[in-house]
Design a protein around this nucleic acid. Structure first.
Lengths: 113, 113
DNA sequence: CCGTATCCGTACTGATACTG
DNA sequence: CAGTATCAGTACGGATACGG
């Protein structure tokens, strides 16, 4: 799902529900666990962990744990993960150009079935 | 999901599970219900109907029923539905270029956890 | 031929509580 | 701070059978 279309079911998604959003959060540099949790408001630590682990397995991001107290863990996009920005931007471009038409069609359906 | 990556969880999807596949099936012209059901092997009529109705509501395709016996119904992409081919192709291009890296990363994870 | 109706399993997501 | 553990609701997709 892409930012900018929260109320409708997004016609374009990357991976699972959170993958694309996480990539957007990491777009401008590494982020810590809670730095991801905050903008993705509503996500529970369990689900965030699952998504991050899956993305790590797929080589989309790296996880770096520092031996400090309090603990610090940083997540950063790999080149592979960053390469997903390209099709994501194509999807965003489609949304900007055509999503209003889709919304209009959906509204018209409600108005005159 | 895009054709060419069946065994892995596709990193890119359009709408629900079947939307993108249906668009591909309609890419080269209108198709009938069973003409869609055959290439999408495994889809049940219930699910296909649900997907087609949702896409019709969103203005992605049109449904035309002819009063004949036996009945004939044709589904055809609208311009809006056809416009989705653009981001879909961007996703396909990503898959062609980068999916092997993703698979390799996933395999490496299994090999040395 | 083109669906609808009914039932059902599971997979996804989340709330809540707890730990190193 | 950065998670793990447990429990639970729901929505998605599918199997099967039947109807216009």
């Amino acid at each position: 799902m892409f930012t900018g279309c929260p109320p409708v079911t997004a016609p374009i998604r990357i991976g699972d529900k959170w993958t694309a959003k996480i990539i957007r959060c990491l777009e401008r540099g590494p982020r810590r666990f809670t730095e991801l949790q905050t903008p993705l408001r509503g996500i529970t630590p369990k689900v965030l962990t699952e998504s991050l682990r899956a993305m790590e397995r797929d080589g989309l991001l790296t996880r770096t744990a520092y031996d400090e107290i309090p603990p610090r863990v940083e997540y950063e996009l790999t080149d592979l993960g960053r390469s997903l920005l390209e099709p994501m931007n194509a999807g965003c471009e489609w949304s900007r150009r055509h999503l209003p038409e889709l919304i209009a069609a959906r509204d018209a359906w409600h108005a005159a079935p």
